[in-house]
Design a protein around this nucleic acid. Structure first.
Lengths: 252, 252
DNA sequence: CTAACGTTTTTCCAACTGGTCAAATTTCCG
DNA sequence: CGGAAATTTGACCAGTTGGAAAAACGTTAG
């Protein structure tokens, strides 16, 4: 019997390019002409306005480019010029769509979060523990493979001490993890999983999967030309499945 | 019988402050007066010169401060001014000891690497597999706890694509991992460990342990006030030990 | 066609950046 | 002590950075 081959879903083809996760619709273009306005209405919460085709396109170009740059150099290390060039437009042109560097960054991050946490959200208390966890690991690994820039953007923010998302970590994220930890604990109580700290289990899943995005250079360098190719995600999936299920110690 | 409490060695006391890993002695101070010199001798490899007390002290102050700044903001995101201020001296003064920003960074990284890889180097083929791996995990976790800035510095370099250390990754690091992977494979052949890809095993150990340094903010935010305190490393050690040894699936 | 709007470009600026240099100050050593 | 060497400082500089302003250009509905 051949070893169980863990199938992880095919990556999107290059012809159908992976689109940026962060596509949250948002405020309309910040118009110079409207600069002083909105002060009377408290939080500037007029009607969202329908966004023209050009606006949508250009904003997407910018966010796509910004993701590239921010994910490699972090917030401080990235420059508007770099992003503008990558997006194929001039700096003032870019600033016409996003008034400040920070605005771009924040849009990226907030657009990212929902998708980023989706796999964990989907973990279902009524499901079978083992398949649920296996599938969570697999989905997380797929995200590392298909959205490595998003992963690195997030990692960069963490390394800086998360100054821009700390509230969300202590709020939404903690709440979600608390909830799922409770579910996992329940499974353990039923004897369907070995007893272990559910929080650290979640950390371990995050760490091992995101590692393949964040430390990609290192992974590829160490695996070398032959083993570091496209197959490495299959290998990783297979390995992680066995690690999380059975560990290393043989049953004597 | 109480659950086995994994002991991880005590952190250095605050009174005996953790010294920077990177303390490689190196070139003497780059003297303005000697600027043009050294061109005749090929690589400027005169005698290393003994370094005065002040030189050692100031260089250490600078490296210590630089580690703080670089590890949070990456190379591009860090400024000499920040480092100088953190080190309690003026920018020109700092530049008297290290002629360029990059010099500081490189010294930091090269001084770090040896120590960073020491735990893996120590993994011994003639030892018992299970204790060897357990102890490797423990040591790695201790390093994440005691040298989080070093871990973050390294992570930052990886996120940027490792432009300054890629050679070392493909050279020394790959060689070391290849060697240890062979040892682990040997152990598996003897039936002393469950069969699994040794490269991905090493990645998993790196990822899970370094996570506690690199994503420290997140870990603390999610664990909350009560569980995120100093005990979290004990909990992590305990969890990782069980995960890597036995996995999650109960033996039916 | 044209006025009104949305978009793009050119020009500009003040703050910050990495780095230099000579002068002033301190330390070291006989 | 006295002077040479080592160290520190203040002034400076050229290039980059985030961003503002306004003029120029394009598009489209009437």
């Amino acid at each position: 019997m051949p070893p169980i081959k863990v199938k992880i879903a095919d990556p999107p083809s290059p012809a159908d390019p992976v689109e940026t996760i962060a596509q949250a619709q948002g405020q309309p273009v910040a118009k110079r002409a409207l600069k002083g306005a909105g002060k009377g209405t408290g939080k500037g919460a007029g009607k969202p306005k329908p966004l023209t085709r050009i606006q949508r396109e250009k904003q997407d170009q910018i966010l796509e480019a910004a993701l590239d740059i921010f994910s490699r150099h972090g917030f401080r290390g990235a420059t508007i010029d770099q992003i503008a060039e990558q997006a194929g437009m001039s700096k003032p042109n870019l600033l016409y769509y996003f008034p400040r560097k920070e605005t771009i960054y924040k849009r990226l991050i907030s657009g990212l979060l929902e998708t980023w946490l989706a796999p964990l959200s989907e973990m279902d208390a009524s499901g079978d523990p083992i398949p649920e966890i296996r599938s969570y690991i697999r989905r997380k690994l797929e995200m590392a493979r298909d959205f490595p820039r998003e992963s690195r953007l997030f990692a960069n923010e963490m390394l800086e001490g998360a100054p821009r998302v700390i509230d969300m970590l202590e709020g939404e994220l903690k709440a979600l993890v608390d909830e799922k930890a409770k579910i996992i604990l329940g499974w353990m109580d039923e004897g369907k999983l070995n007893r272990a700290d559910p929080y650290h289990l979640i950390f371990a899943i995050w760490a091992t999967t995101q590692h393949y995005a964040d430390f990609d250079v290192q992974v590829r360098a160490v695996l070398g030309r032959d083993r570091g190719g496209d197959g490495r995600y299959e290998d990783a999936a297979h390995f992680l499945e066995r690690l999380f299920m059975h560990g290393l110690q043989p049953r004597r």
